[in-house]
Design a binder for these strands. Structure first.
Length: 204
DNA sequence: GAGTAGATCCTCT
DNA sequence: GAGGATCTACTCA
């Protein structure tokens, strides 16, 4: 079943990021359906988080979806070529977001391979935020879409992870964020080959 | 295996 | 006009 508004509309974005692990991300564009299990996320804690686009209450046309209602997609282009997919959480006006960093492909693998220009399934297909967006067909034009619609949404298929299957570390690629770059806001499923980054992990 | 550079373009200053 | 929540390929060891 689809995740409810109550799931997204909570104060603790870090907890939501952790709970999104193991859920199924579904995209359904032009009747083409692809799905994947979320294996890596990062939390971005709104205006108090230097790594967030909304740090200090920054509000522009680009990050406007972050201030939108809970359960909205925030997608933007990074480094001129990568589309990054975020889930907006909490109430209207509070720009919390969870970045989906990696998926394990489930349905529509052939379509994902075609979108990526690959012939064979390998671990690089949906590993890393830029790659997964491309494989799922996610583009900036979908930024601001609600996750209660039919085009993009997240499902719970009943899978439950043990605590010892989940690891935390500092976030990737946010060295510019000062001490906030050190926060253990990245979560991933241990030993999953689709998780991006290096082997290093940080203990709580 | 580890480190580095280049790709590439929208957004904000 | 500069730089960015990245990825890949290539170098060197």
């Amino acid at each position: 079943m689809k995740l409810s508004e109550e799931f997204y509309c909570r104060d603790d974005v870090v907890k939501i990021a952790k709970e999104l692990l193991g859920k199924i991300l579904v995209t359904n564009f032009n009747g083409t359906r692809t799905t994947g299990r979320i294996v890596e996320t990062e939390a971005y804690k709104g205006i108090v988080d230097q790594a967030s686009h909304a740090f200090g209450g920054r509000r522009t046309e680009r990050n406007e979806p972050m201030y939108a209602t809970t359960g909205t997609a925030y997608i933007y282009l990074c480094y001129g070529m990568h589309h990054l997919f975020n889930v907006v959480t909490n109430k209207i006006g509070i720009p919390h977001a969870v970045l989906i960093r990696a998926l394990e492909p489930v349905e529509g693998i052939k379509i994902m391979l075609k979108r990526r220009g690959k012939r064979q399934l390998d671990h690089g297909l949906t590993r890393g935020p830029g790659n997964l967006s491309k494989a799922m067909g996610i583009r900036t034009k979908y930024s601001g879409e609600g996750l209660s619609g039919d085009q993009i949404f997240i499902m719970d298929d009943g899978l439950r992870l043990n605590k010892n299957q989940v690891a935390a570390s500092r976030r990737i690629g946010v060295d510019y964020a000062g001490k906030d770059a050190l926060l253990p806001y990245r979560f991933y499923i241990k030993q999953n080959p689709f998780v991006s980054g290096k082997k290093e992990s940080l203990k709580f």
